[in-house]
Structures are given as structure tokens and as C-alpha cells.
Design a protein around this nucleic acid. Structure first.
Length: 193
DNA sequence: GCAATGATACAG
DNA sequence: TGTATCATTGCT
């Protein structure tokens, strides 16, 4: 599982759009308390870049909710929204520059039976959305600020040493009230097929 | 097309 | 302290 190695801080500290593109096709892994493993290949990501980006949660500066984004690259920023859903982001750039990549979908690889238990859906809808994915993987506030680079952390991303798959760029999803030019920035990357 | 469901942010 | 909003999902 860990054969190709966990991605480290130097990977995540690259410019956000670079990290976002390179994350496509990488293997997101979570080790459960019982020792079993959940994993999936990242299929869709979205970038939120700094205080200038008016769609980014850090647009109004640091708050209790978004403080993880101001931390080191490679840490998780997890937040609750719509009263129901958890969202999982990976912090990018240098410390103090609040930017992150939202994981919006993965293709399940390991632990599919666990994902089926946690979600009541057909296999197609197991993890093909930002909150579907966190529910399938059991990710919530407890993973906020988790350092994905730490060899001891139960959540990390594995470099499979594969070429970045073909993908399309689109405007970001669900940010309708964001003013231009940020509304139209093609910062949603989605693998084709 | 819209309800669910509650934390967050900001106005007053 | 009140309330509009929300980086969504699932059902009608």
C-alpha cells in the first residue's frame, strides 16, 4: 500500500493550481481504527487561493473555522456546512498564505464494503461528491489540522507514480454568490471518464 | 425544484 | 442576540 510513499511537505507547498492538478489520480488513504484501509483515486479537486480569492473561506482573514488554512502545507482543513456535510481540503502554499485544495471526488479502491455501510447508496454514488466522499471515508472535524505528511497520521496521500490523467477545467461549484472574476475562474479540475 | 439541518459570520 | 448564508445531498 505504501510502496510508492506518502506525499511530503515539499509537494503540498507548491502553488495551489499545481498541487491540484498533480493530486488527480493520486491515492487518498485512510487507516481505520481496526487496522483496515480505505483508499480511492482522486478524480475531482477545486482550488481556493488566498485572501484575494473571494470564494475562499479565508477572504475575510483568519477565523476559528478557517485557521487550518493558515497553517503548514500538507495539513487538512475540514469544515462543516449546510448543517449536514463535512468538506475535506488539503492546505497548500507557504505557511501564512491561506490556500487549499478541496477534494470533490474519489474512485473507491480499498474498503468498499465499509463505504457501503457508511453510505446508503448505489456504488456509483459512494464517493463522487465532496460530502459523499467524507461520509464514505468517515472524515469529520477530528481530522481538521491533521498533518498528511506525518508518517504516523492515519490519513495521507500515496504517490502511485502515475501520469496525471486527462482532465477538464471548469468554474468552481456551488459559489454562486461570489463576484467576478473569481466566480468564473476555471479552478475545478475533473478527470475525464 | 426544494427541504434538511445547524454552524458561521456579520449586522445591529 | 437575530438571521442570512452556506465550497451539498437526496428525494419529489
Amino acid at each position: 500500500m505504501d510502496r510508492f510513499g506518502r506525499l511530503g511537505h515539499s509537494f503540498y507547498s507548491q502553488p495551489t493550481l499545481i498541487v491540484a492538478e498533480l493530486l488527480l489520480g493520486k491515492q487518498l488513504v485512510k487507516v481505520e481504527r481496526d487496522g483496515s484501509t480505505l483508499s480511492g483515486l482522486i478524480t475531482e479537486v477545486e482550488s481556493y487561493i488566498g485572501t484575494e480569492d473571494l470564494a475562499c473561506h479565508a477572504r475575510n482573514g483568519r477565523t476559528e473555522r478557517n485557521q487550518a488554512m493558515f497553517g503548514k502545507a500538507g495539513k487538512a482543513y475540514v469544515y462543516f456546512t449546510y448543517g449536514i456535510h463535512w468538506m475535506f481540503n488539503i492546505v497548500t502554499e507557504s505557511e501564512g498564505m491561506p490556500s487549499a485544495v478541496l477534494v470533490r471526488g474519489v474512485t473507491p479502491i480499498d474498503g468498499i464494503s465499509t463505504m457501503r455501510q457508511r453510505r446508503q447508496s448505489n456504488d456509483k454514488d459512494l464517493s463522487n461528491g465532496p460530502a459523499k466522499f467524507t461520509q464514505a471515508f468517515g472524515i469529520d472535524l477530528r481530522w481538521n489540522n491533521t498533518n498528511l505528511c506525518d508518517p504516523k497520521s492515519d490519513l495521507y496521500i500515496n504517490d502511485l507514480d502515475q501520469k496525471t490523467p486527462m482532465f477538464v477545467k471548469s468554474p468552481r461549484i456551488g459559489i454562486d454568490r461570489t463576484p467576478e472574476p473569481w466566480l468564473s475562474k476555471p479552478w475545478n479540475f475533473k478527470v475525464i471518464g
